[in-house]
Design a protein around this nucleic acid. Sequence first.
DNA 1: CTGTTAGCGCCTTCAT
DNA 2: ATGAAGGCGCTAACAG
Lengths: 306, 306
Amino acid sequence: MAAVEQLGYQPSAVARGLVKRRMDIVGVALLHWEGTLYGNAYLMSLLDGILTPCTRRRQNVMLLALPGWDDEEAGSRIADGRCDGVLLLVPPMQCPLLDTLRQRSLPFVAVNSADPLGSTASVDVDNIAASAEATRHLLELGHRRIAIVGHPWDRVTLYYQDRREGCRRAMAEAGIEGGVTELTVDEAADLDLSAAGCPTALVCAYDGIALILLQYLKKRGIRVPEDISIVSFDDIPGAAGSDPPLTTVRQPAVRLGERSVEMLLEMIANPALQVRQEILPTELIVRGSTAVVRSSRPGAADSLPT
Amino acid sequence: MAAVEQLGYQPSAVARGLVKRRMDIVGVALLHWEGTLYGNAYLMSLLDGILTPCTRRRQNVMLLALPGWDDEEAGSRIADGRCDGVLLLVPPMQCPLLDTLRQRSLPFVAVNSADPLGSTASVDVDNIAASAEATRHLLELGHRRIAIVGHPWDRVTLYYQDRREGCRRAMAEAGIEGGVTELTVDEAADLDLSAAGCPTALVCAYDGIALILLQYLKKRGIRVPEDISIVSFDDIPGAAGSDPPLTTVRQPAVRLGERSVEMLLEMIANPALQVRQEILPTELIVRGSTAVVRSSRPGAADSLPT
DNA sequence: CTGTTAGCGCCTTCAT
DNA sequence: ATGAAGGCGCTAACAG
């Protein structure tokens, strides 16, 4: 035993893992290609939340960077016994990796992407309700023509669709029918404010888009919120420090990360556990990027709240 | 073999690892406590650079979040055979983990923290030269009283000390002796510009500090760069979008990450390889947070460059 | 309570 | 070519 100290002996985690069928590693699968993380503060916050309970509970975190969710070999890189369970960051409802995990009955939790069918464990927010709240805020400020802004590739995501749906519902409740106009970032940046029917407020799919848009608009001399109001989602660091500070729906990113790890660890410890879907609350943070609609904007004054 | 397809058989990476003594996992050790990643865009960029070559070369990345570099159990969590090598993100020159890795002769590369003795493999930038360049930029703008700003805990880091040293050298070359004033973020935010001897330019230890400082100063009605100039380091996303956009020394974070992985994989493949220390170039990005010193600032006009 | 032994699932070597 | 066997380093079950 003295020799153990002397020689600095370390038991092999791999050999132990082979016997105990547990590596104390949780996998974290996320989309990644060069530059994806760079600037993706939201993912960073999620990771932050994931790491804390892992460190406390002596779990290691293995990152699985996927070029796409349809990647066929993802399963063989993470469902090969090296992880005890997997966290999927914003996965689609269907992909080969999900099938592989199910087949190998490896526990997994979807983060920020709840299956409407309720068949997979998940931790998420209620994007529809969150977006409806943000939209109502705009409606209360007198905005009637509201568009949603996102990249074309965002449109396939569940959270985008839910946020659009929330927006639609809030507008419908206010008597504005006809769906929500969808704009790409470029279209939003090039908006002709003097055109009839031009939106007076923009709902951005997430803060990253809002921040970029703010820069484009500033370059064109368009003032936010005087000329156009902007709300978005996430409340990443940087949302409060932008010019103007963003009005945004805060997502409890750190909590989402924490809860998803805890749920996963429970599932690993007790595989018979029933699938749970947890919903965490969001909060509308009103800052400087939204204001009462300007009466000089065509078609705005006639619909100010009474 | 048809059964393999049918049953979805997956070889166990753990059993294979036991035999081959290789898990195809690179460990990434970094300091972490709750909220550390949140907003640490620089680390994110490093990670980004690390993930790309790893994905390409079928390596997995295991995150080891350390509460501190003096953590005694860090070694047993990563030097227990589960990783083939380790990347240390901004480690100190001495810590138990380093000793453990050396003892177990596990290959490792220090990122952004080159050992002046040259005894450990590393990928870094030349912080002294980078800081001297930034300082010369300020000197050329007529600034003579320059202070460096950092949190108290930054001061123990090598990069802080090197950046301060670079600053000192550039000032000494310009005939300004006496060392560099060191300010905490709070002190810098509370600066009395009308006081004699008050700095006219600030060198922030990194962009995160500069961005925070910008907000504090704005709240106090102090204009940047009119009232005070600011330079910093890293060029994180957000540095270009701040108000004003930051003048900063760009660190090739993604490249640093990429190179360090590649070096580590070489060392894993060939343990006899000689220790290399790689230095990557930086670039001063001049934007809007620096300007010619105002003659109205006391003691500034008398020392304008001739 | 200490000491021995049989695998964990794979790869490698050796024999057929 | 295909097949059998030993062992990687550990744990757990068993025997002394």
